[in-house]
Design a protein around this nucleic acid. Structure first.
Lengths: 237, 237
DNA sequence: ACAAACCTGTCATCAAGCTGTCATAATGAT
DNA sequence: ATCATTATGACAGCTTGATGACAGGTTTGT
């Protein structure tokens, strides 16, 4: 199997750095790693898109001036992509002009920092954005009606009792817990668990749903994953 | 569907400004109003809390140094309040120290701007935050006289009770809910549900109407879909 | 290094649910 | 009363999802 989305045992946050200046890029990557983030690097817009095909970062830092395209264009592309469009983006550039800031923010960036940027401030802002996008889940804990998942510990408790799941089942349940009561189509599930450019039968999703249901059944909560014929599945109490 | 950045014309955002310097406060309020926001003002932490008891702003701008408490303390209080804790907060202060920025962001502010701040930048940042927080509230819901459809969850509730529909019935009901009280011709219905270039008898529509009515009948609302002889159907109370 | 245990992605098969059409009965309009 | 239009019940065909089995592949413990 080709697992494109690696989920390290300790679930760290993935940060993608898009910056053509190697010195700055490496420095940022270093600082971020030291803070416990997993970093991915890209030196151009195309490299960035390439990375995005393989990883779904939790946040992206983008330099305004890239060799092959403007950072703003990259943001546009990201915001148009169904799978990752929600990712927080911090724009980091040398342009201090007010008009540029406004433009960057209006065009889809969530934050705008001018170089030379303080690493501490960048870090703080990254954390602030992650705090939100992860749903105040800096603790890495997800919960829904008695199902408690500690993503970091890779552990699931149902009504206090521990539940063991395989990696795929775990990711699947996590996806459900992140979108409770929302309908998830097969396509969506595939994209988020196997990555976009993988060739996996959609029917495979069924099988994993089945397996997850079996696991939940031991705790009487197998009915919580509902099938919506022709569309997908959803987690409901 | 549509974009995330959908801006209903009538929709005004409530912004609460917490700032003790009257000149700055009024200037901000003025600028914000001109941009179409509804503003609420507070000159101290207590005034702010007072306001919060009456209004639930969509975003709060807080000055670090308030006469009666630190802006950070105010943030703490807000974040502890179950009802409004999710509101985006922008901290606006004279303190340019890096350590302060970090502290503000770590303690719960979503953004941090140093005075003198550019109104344009503030505006852009406010919009960027609203863009996100509103995205979550845009949970696509349709309602008509007790029939509530959550398209995202693919769920229909009638007077609170759940109703299960097949995919076609669901789409049909959705079409009606999107056009309440409007007359929908067969042709129109066909186009919207089966697509323009499909070969389906228009009598088929009748059958699906029938099925939808049957489903609604369980909740006594089958009469709501009226037949308009020779033309089509419409949803009416 | 080796075997046992476990995971995973696919299949083939089965059952259940949906759909589009008809034929026929109702209903409404003139 | 007659013609046009719609409501209904029945149905056969088709899709879609559930399930059990299985062959590789990987991990774990010894």
């Amino acid at each position: 199997m080709t697992t494109l989305i690696e989920e390290p045992a300790e679930m760290h946050n993935n940060i993608l750095i898009v910056e053509d200046d190697m010195a700055i890029r490496e420095m940022m990557a270093f600082s971020l790693r030291r803070e416990g983030f997993d970093t991915f690097k890209a030196a151009s817009g195309h490299e960035a898109l390439d990375q995005l095909n393989r990883v779904h970062p939790d946040l992206i830092v983008i330099d305004w001036g890239l060799p092959d395209m403007s950072g703003i264009d990259l943001i546009d592309m990201i915001r148009r992509d169904k799978v990752i469009k929600e990712v927080p983006i911090i724009m980091l550039t040398a342009r201090a002009e007010e008009a540029d800031k406004v433009k960057g923010l209006e065009r889809g960036a969530d934050d705008y920092l001018t170089k030379p940027a303080s690493m501490l401030e960048l870090m703080a802002r990254i954390r602030a954005h992650l705090r939100r996008s992860r749903g105040f889940e800096l603790t890495h804990k997800l919960e829904y009606q008695g199902i408690v998942m500690d993503a970091e510990a890779h552990e699931v408790l149902i009504d206090g009792k521990s539940l063991s799941l395989s990696l795929t089942e775990f990711k699947l349940l996590k996806l459900f817990l992140q979108n409770p009561n929302k309908l998830l189509g097969r396509e969506h599930i595939l994209n988020h668990i196997w990555g976009r450019n993988t060739f996996v039968e959609d029917r495979t999703v069924d099988v994993h749903i089945l397996r997850l249901r079996k696991a939940l059944k031991k705790h009487g909560k197998d009915k919580w994953i509902q099938t919506v014929r022709g569309v997908g599945y959803k987690l409901t109490s």
